[in-house]
Design a protein around this nucleic acid. Structure first.
Lengths: 237, 237
DNA sequence: GGCACTTAATGTTGACGTGACTTTAAGGTA
DNA sequence: TACCTTAAAGTCACGTCAACATTAAGTGCC
């Protein structure tokens, strides 16, 4: 039915959408950011793209994502999950740009969350820059759609799974946790109701201590319940 | 950090977990079945495996899944969605069997649903056989885990998304729809409550007609609301 | 010290969804 | 006509949740 054309080969890449929280320069509000890498060769030379690279023959998929991440941005993610495998034939030149790559690329895309303090360690190198997730420049390939999908996934998953802690240090207040939700979902949440829901999940363990040094009633500190951070199905059992 | 060993290459395959409903031979109850293909070469020769094949260079991922499906089982799925990309290095010889394949295989796995009347068209060839999804023989590679994951996904998704209709013809009664849910989830559901929930989704359109020839009150017929059957993210927008 | 101010934490109330169950409707069959 | 079966609609108690109110516990200012 389908005869493979000789001048085209399928190669496999692993890319990652990495989310982090930082204050917005204008508003000062906590906002979702992600690091992008500037392409230094055709196609799409000079444009911004997701960090990624070819899959090495002796690397697991998730390991490949982590290695490229470490190599390009210096980041160690606190949460990593497979997003989707993008592999349509036309995706290299989907933006109607005249570029023609001889190789067809199938990208297995992961999405990752990093802690706020980890962001500080990030290498802001020559060709790596952070952008506001909801206000990105034009991206290479189909990476804009991929980011959209990752954003939708993050926003959906944070509402029914305790992944917000992946943005936070080991000890945090309920206000911290709520701030993460509000930043990700871009809404305000009722503190009282948020508390009730958060405590109902049973994934929060009170440390017994309170945060001191506030100019008001000191909030209780919590820790996230130990437990596997959503293992990939290949690692299950 | 990682030097690719010379004797190993990464190749890409697309496989599919196909679900269909048939009465169980013993109990007569509606049950989940899936077709498997007998392997005719090493590794795992003679064992049962998911239908699949190498990705052709000019084929989209979903198209590849559909083509292999058509080729091996003769089936045309009514629903097709990407499940996961399995690509760990050790997955070819994960069962401690002595087989050694020189190539490493990354499988992009889809899951599919076929209508009951479509199952009749299925080719029950020499090397294709249907099995009860929850009572499978030992499978080749890591396919048993893949099926488990697909089963979990199907059971989770049918509870919050209207995909049950993919098993049914265009017109059906609420009892038919409920029977699908009961077969997939292996439970009994309260008819009255199921009706309320089903109608609340607004995805069911009454045809106005009733099913005749029953030895009791004739049930109303419904049609599924037109609408894209969960497009893959690459096809969105 | 007393008061204003801020956030933490707890309580209250009404709307809504859901599971278990009951009642009525509409056919066929003995 | 009595009876059986399933369809379809209705009832009720319970739990969840958004919205709002109240109390608790600190700081800073006069």
């Amino acid at each position: 039915m389908t005869t493979s054309s000789i001048d085209q080969r399928v190669s496999l890449a692993v890319s990652t959408v990495i989310f982090a929280l930082r204050p917005h320069p204008d508003t000062g509000l906590m906002t979702l950011w992600l690091p992008l890498v500037r392409r230094i060769r055709e196609p799409y030379e000079g444009m911004w793209a997701l960090p990624g690279g070819p899959l090495e023959a002796d690397e697991d998929l998730a390991a490949s994502a982590q290695h490229t991440l470490e190599r390009t941005t210096g980041l160690a993610p606190n949460y990593l999950e497979q997003l989707y495998a993008f592999g349509n034939v036309d995706r290299s030149h989907s933006d109607t740009v005249g570029y023609r790559s001889s190789d067809r690329v199938v990208s297995i895309v992961y999405w990752a969350l990093v802690r706020q303090d980890e962001v500080a360690r990030a290498v802001d190198g020559e060709n790596v820059e952070w952008f506001v997730a909801d206000d990105l420049p034009p991206l290479a390939f189909d990476h804009a759609q991929i980011v959209d999908y990752a954003l939708a996934r993050l926003r959906a998953k944070i509402t029914y799974t305790p992944i917000a802690h992946a943005f936070l240090p080991t000890e945090f207040t309920l206000a911290d946790l709520r701030a993460v939700h509000e930043a990700v979902l871009r809404t305000t949440l009722d503190p009282a109701n948020f508390r009730r829901q958060a405590l109902a999940t049973k994934t929060l363990v009170p440390t017994g201590t309170c945060l001191q040094g506030t100019s008001h009633r000191p909030p209780a500190l919590f820790r996230f319940e130990a437990g596997a951070p959503t293992p990939a199905p290949e690692e299950q059992r």
